[in-house]
Nucleic acid binder design. Sequence first.
RNA 1: GGAGGGAUGGCAGAGUGGUUGAAUGCGGUGGUCUUGAAAACCACUGAAGUCCUUUGGGCUUCCGGGGGUUCGAAUCCCUCUCCCUCCGCCA
Length: 471
Amino acid sequence: MPASPGLPCCPPPQPKPQPSNKPCKTSACQDNRRARNLKPAFKGGTMLALNFIRKNTNLVKQALIDLNTEAPIDEILALDVRRRNILAEVESLRAERNAGSKAIGALMRQGNKDQAEAQKKRMGELGAKIGALNETLTRIEAGLKQNLLLVPNMPLPEVPVGPDEADNVVLREHGQKPAFNFTPKPHWDIGEALDIIDFERGVKLSGSRFYVLKGPGARLQRALITWMLDVHTLEHGYTEIYPPFIVREHCLVGTGNLPKFGENLYHDAEEDYWLIPTAEVPTTNLYREEILDEAQLPIYHVAYTPCFRREKMSAGRDVRGIKRGHQFDKVEMVKFVTPETGRRELDNLLDDAEDICRRLELPYRIVQMCTGDLSFVSAIKFDIELWAAGCRDWLEVSSCALFTDFQARRANIRYRPADGGKPRHVYTLNGSGLALPRLMIAVLENYQQADGSVIVPEAIRPYMGGVDVIK
RNA sequence: GGAGGGAUGGCAGAGUGGUUGAAUGCGGUGGUCUUGAAAACCACUGAAGUCCUUUGGGCUUCCGGGGGUUCGAAUCCCUCUCCCUCCGCCA
C-alpha cells in the first residue's frame, strides 16, 4: 500500500554528501519575520492528506487495521463532502458579489446614484447569505482539521504486518556479549558503589524517576555527548543545532506529538510553552512554513538536548535505575530530504547511529517495528537495542524512522524542485544517536570489572580528561 | 515591566476605501542581438483551495494572525503575535 501520494517508485539516486558549512539560504535566515508569524499549518499540507484519504479510502482503512488503531475516516469523508458543496456555493456567490461591487464603483463614477444604491442593497443581501454559509464552512473546516490530525501515517509496504510488538523482527545482531568470570551487576549497584549516580538525592530534589550524576558519572555522560556530536558533525556530515528546549504548541502538532499524546508532555499552565520531549521537535520545526530550494537538500542536523517526558503512559514501568526518567539527555539526528531519497536516507541514518555503538564496542541488535508497534508518525521504523549485561536486557537506545511527508504536511515544510515545478513536501527522518541514560547503562554494565570499577571505552577516552577507569 | 515606531510579493520598497494580486527597482527564468560573453531591449516570474468539456481553462482566498465596519478593505476600527528604539530589571 502506498505510504503517501508521493511514495517513491524507483530506486533513489545516490545521496549527496552535505557540505558542513554550506551557507544557509532559507528565507528564515534572510528574514526571520516570517518564521515568527505563523499561519496555521492546516491549509497547506494537511489538505493533501485529505485528498489522499478521499482517493484511497480502502487503502487507508486497511492500514488502520494493520496499525491496530482507529481514526475517524468516515467522519472526515462526510465533512469533506459537505465542505466542498458549501465551498462551491459560497465561492460562486462571492464571485457574483465581487462583480456587483465593482459595478457599484463604475456607477458612482458615472454619477448614477440611484442605480448604485439599488445595487448596494442587492449586494448587501448577498453578503448576508455569504456570511451565513461561511460560518457553517468555518465550523466544518475546524472539525475536519481536528479529525485529520488524528489520522496516523501510512506504513510502507515492506513493514511486517502484526498487531503488537510480538511481531517485531530482529533483523541482525552485532558484536559479542561480554563474558564475565563474576556475576555482572546492574548499573544501579555499580553507580551507587562508585558514587557516580545518586538516586536518593535525585528523589529528594524532584521525586521518583530523577537522579543525580556525580563526578566521573557526570563526566562520562558529558564525554559521550560531546564525542557523539563530534562523530556526527565531523564524520557523518551533520550540522549541529542548539535549539530552544521550550516550544509552542504548533511545533508539537507539526511533529505529531499533539493533539493525541499531550498527556506525555510537560507544559506551562498559563502560557503556551511546552518542554520538548525530544530534540526532534524543535529541529524538525526549524523549517516549518518554509519553501526550501531543492539545492539545499538533503539537510542533516544533529542536536543535543535534554528531553522531558511525563511517562504517564509508562507509569510503573522501569522505575529502577536510570532507564526511564522524566528528564534525560539525547543526541538526535534529523534529516530533510526529497521523497525519492527518503528510504535510502533511512538506511544511512540507521548506520550513522549504529556507528556509535560499533565504535564503543557495545553489542547491539536492530529490530524492525511491525505495523502494530509503529509510532503514530512513522512509515517505517528500526530500533537499535544495546545489550546491558547487568540487567540482562536489550535497551532501546535509538529509534530511526522515516516519516515520509507526514510531518512535513503538518508543519508545512516544502521545497521547490530544481526544475522549477510546484513546491513539494520534503520527507523528514530522525533517529537518536544516541539516548544517554541507556547508553550509560550499557557502558557501565558491559565495561564493569570484578573489583567494581568500570573501564572507559577507548573511543571516548580523549574526552574523559585522562580517566581510563572509573573506580 | 513602561513608552513609542513598525510588519506589503525571492529581496528592497510604493500604495489611506473601488479594474491593486498589488507601482517601481533588484534578483531569477526565457528570448532578441553577439563568434562567445557583457550591456541593451522584450516577455515571463508567489502560494493555497475548488470546479470543469483537465497537456488547458474558470472561480475563490491570501498584503504578520484573528475579529469588526462596508455593497466593496493592503488601505478604516479592535485585538493578538513578532520585530526595532528608549527606560527599568536581570543570568
